[in-house]
Amino acid sequence: MSNVTNTASRSGALRFALTMILALVVSVSLTQISSAAHTPPVNGIVVGVETDDAGALIRFAVADSSGTIHTFTIFNGTEYGLENQAGDRWVSMQEEDPSEAARRLRDHRERFAPITVTSENGTAFSVVEREEGKLETNLGYLFAVFAITWALFFAYVLYLGRKQRVLQHEIARLEGLSGK
């Protein structure tokens, strides 16, 4: 009797444990799916391209405007829409021409041409020419240029003004000495 009870309680505990594991797995998966669905596209410039021995693209890294580096892996379905310097657009998928993808990204890296990457969990789904600019930000950089320009101009004019005063004194002193 006690054996039957023990077996039943063990089986209940096992079921409970399995249910908990399943719930955990489902909730983690749902969280990942929901976060992946909300992963915003990354805009930035290519800072690293990694290829295999055959020259096929494996991974690449993008730096966004805040300097953060994002690394993306590739899969066969990764789509590309990249332009060369003349503006001709190359549209393809990773499985069609993996080495051309690497070449195009290296070209973008050399030209500092910005790209937009949509991804899920670090896997790039599409890699295209930059699609959006940040209109509302970057004012700090503009202010910095404005402030530096005028600070240097005014500092130089003040320096000239001080120099002029010293010279006026010197000329008055020397004219006094020579009795003019």
């Binding site: 600019g133 940040k134 004012l139 950089y141």
Partner: peptide
Amino acid sequence: ETNQGAVQRI
């Protein structure tokens, strides 16, 4: 400017 935003005024 549409691509770079305000920073293009530099």
